[in-house]
């Protein structure tokens, strides 16, 4: 049986205590639900002498709905996805979260953990023995990115299902460090590097995610489509998260489209979104926007399904998500999704 390596395990009881621990031990790793870190440690592609758990910090708990939605970083995925207010007001977020892995895992995994989930690659998410047998890779202990050997940067892909949807909805992230805190648009938490995919200092702790009220179902049309092999368990090999705001005449005033698993960070399909501004939500405009979403996506041969085909699917899935958001009939066959969370 594959086991965890030994490490020192700290369970601080306040945010201040946790921040102090991190400041004192910059190499320490944070853990919340553990569903990302423990497998990574078991396979030794991440290492830790000290692990600091966030699960006892009262400041990071809970799910609060006022005008908007505030999610504590350690709110459990299952609690968010089943919350009646979230389902009613941010149904696409509930759908995205309900698509993460499997039900028992969502009982353990947290929203903060999912937003910060390590990038993935089939050359990386492997055991120590396996990685030794390929001479390691750029992301861990090696010098070559085997996905594209000429690439100077790691091409591991973002694996979060909540992140593209939260970005599309315009969520903010709150980060706390011993010297203060800051609130940033979530997309600014990410950068296009498979290794340093989080634009966050090591002493910063993600404490909250804030989803604006203007992104709820009363103001915004949104949808989330996820491509994966099975109807459960699997990470996305592509996801399309769209949020559209229209004026009373039905013309698009604002559009945000983010793609998952086709880059090292959630990919903003800005051309596609820009194209929709001022246009009605017709089949033709949506199809054209979807076509424009293809360009910024870089599906690589580092996950399930053929990479080239995943590229084709960027257009299909973006169009399907846009059509669903616009209320047009959905023509595409989704992979075997379990019942999608109803709005």
């Amino acid at each position: 049986m594959l086991r965890l390596p030994a490490f020192r395990f700290l369970q601080p009881k306040t945010l201040g205590e946790a921040a102090a621990m991190l400041a004192g031990e910059p190499e320490a790793r944070l853990v919340a639900g553990g569903t990302d870190l423990w497998p990574n440690l078991k396979r030794r592609h991440q290492k830790a002498q000290t692990v600091v758990s966030l699960m006892r910090l009262p400041e990071l708990r809970g799910l609060h709905v006022n005008g908007g939605l505030r999610l504590g970083a350690t709110a459990l995925l299952a609690d968010i996805e089943t919350d009646t207010q979230v389902r009613a007001r941010w149904p696409s977020l509930a759908t995205a979260i309900a698509s993460i892995s499997s039900p028992p895992l969502r009982n353990m995994g947290t929203i903060g953990g999912n937003v910060c989930v390590d990038t993935r690659c089939t050359y990386y998410n492997q055991t120590e023995d396996w990685r030794r047998s390929i001479g390691y890779c750029l992301k861990a202990e090696g010098s070559t990115c085997w996905v594209a050997t000429s690439s100077p940067t790691c091409l591991a892909h973002t694996a979060s299902d909540s992140a593209p949807m939260l970005c599309a909805l315009g969520a903010q992230a709150r980060l706390v460090a011993p010297d203060g805190e800051r609130e940033i648009p979530l997309e600014q938490l990410y950068q296009d590097d498979g290794i340093q995919y989080l634009a966050k200092r090591s002493d910063e702790i993600l404490t909250d995610l804030l989803v604006p009220g203007e992104a709820d179902a009363a103001h915004c049309r949104s949808a989330f489509w996820k491509l994966r092999r099975r109807g459960t368990i699997d990470f996305a090999v592509l996801s399309a998260a769209v949020a559209l705001w229209t004026d009373p005449s039905g013309e698009v005033t604002r559009a945000r489209i983010y793609l998952g698993a086709v880059g090292s960070q959630p990919v903003a399909a800005t051309d596609a979104a820009q194209f929709l501004i001022g246009k009605p939500l017709t089949a033709e405009t949506l199809a054209e926007a979807a076509r424009l979403a293809r360009k910024p996506a870089y599906p690589m041969d580092n996950t399930d399904f053929q990479a080239q085909w995943r590229g084709t699917m960027v257009v299909q899935y973006t169009e399907a998500a846009l059509r669903e958001a616009a209320g047009l009939p959905v023509e595409r066959l989704a992979p075997r999704h379990l019942p999608v969370v109803a709005g």
Binding site: F9, T35, W38, P39, K42, R43, P103, P104, L105
Partner: peptide, 24 residues
Amino acid sequence: CELGECGACAVLVDGRPVLSCLAL
């Protein structure tokens, strides 16, 4: 699977199913 991928290790913690291979 040892890695949270199969569910064979599920137990209930406070009434909810969790993967005991991924719980300390």
